[in-house]
């Protein structure tokens, strides 16, 4: 009886996952219908860029991005517009803004190869080091960031399915090899769930990048004369908490600090 219950549980789980895997949201994706206002704005930006009007291209793409946000355009489309803005800012001699745009594009579309390539150049141009460090934790985090939230969710489902399948084998057949396989499946679970954990932990946060090449002073209060409580280097990423006119409250090392708003650049597209 208990065996039937266990088998039922596993079977139910498989059914749920298969249902979830069905392309239920496919109809929400932009189809091959006429271009949306955001798309036409982006096209206008491209035309202006080709004509050499960098200012116009920036304005066009900025407007297209706003429209894309309002329309709920897919992340890939927003990342593409941000990428184009990064290229334009680099051409205008604004390497820090260029870095921020490419960073934002990669956060929306982590495997946008052109953005990754250009980000390296822009960071070098801005005098910043590599995007991620050489340590194990940094490397794993960088690896986890190459997935989108949706991919991270599917990866977690894959991990659960892997465990369920091998668990079924081990429960019914026993033996050393099924047991070893199940143990291996258990060991890879942290890696399969890590991207999901990362994205969930960042859900709801508003990352901002410091784009002042000289870095910024952290203040205890939103005033120029307020006590200095630290500093941030150019390229540092902090989480937005609140804002007042001219000042943004961010979280640094678990503490709330105030930073001049013009030194920050929002990375969420």
């Amino acid at each position: 009886m208990a065996a039937a219950r266990g088998a039922l549980l596993l079977a139910a789980m498989l059914v749920v996952s298969l249902l979830a895997a069905s392309p239920s949201g496919a109809q929400d994706l932009p189809g091959a219908a006429a271009a949306s206002p955001a798309e036409s704005g982006a096209d206008r930006g491209s035309v202006l860029w080709r004509s050499g009007d960098q200012e116009g291209a920036v304005a066009g793409w900025a407007a297209a991005l706003e429209q894309a946000r309002a329309d709920g355009a897919p992340p890939a489309e927003r990342a593409r517009i941000a990428y184009n803005l990064g290229v334009t800012e680099a051409a205008r001699g604004e390497p820090m803004r260029s870095v921020a745009w490419f960073e934002a594009a990669l956060r929306a579309a982590p495997r946008l190869e052109d953005a990754n390539f250009n980000l390296g150049l822009a960071r070098a141009d801005a005098g910043l080091g590599p995007r991620s460090g050489d340590g194990l934790v940094e490397s794993l985090e960088a690896l986890a960031r190459t997935t989108t939230p949706a991919e991270a969710e599917w990866l977690a489902v894959l991990g659960a399915l892997l465990f369920a399948g091998l668990g079924l084998l081990e429960a019914l057949r026993g033996g050393s090899w099924p047991r070893r396989l199940l143990l291996a499946a258990a060991l890879v679970q942290p890696f399969l769930f890590a991207p999901l954990v990362l994205h969930v932990s960042e859900r709801g946060s508003e990352p901002f990048m410091v784009i002042d090449p000289a870095g910024v002073q952290l203040r205890a209060a939103p005033e120029d004369g307020a006590e200095r409580v630290g500093s941030l280097k150019a390229g540092a990423v902090v989480n937005y908490l609140d804002e007042l006119p001219g000042w943004t409250k961010v979280r640094v090392g678990g503490e709330a600090r105030w930073v001049p708003s013009e030194a920050l650049f929002g990375l969420r597209l």
Partner: peptide, 19 residues
């Protein structure tokens, strides 16, 4: 233009717990 939406952040965890 990118993948469709994911199955939700909870499904993976629930499935693993059920498994």
């Amino acid at each position: 233009e990118g993948p469709g939406p994911g199955p939700g952040p909870l499904l993976g965890g629930l499935m693993l717990a059920a498994a």
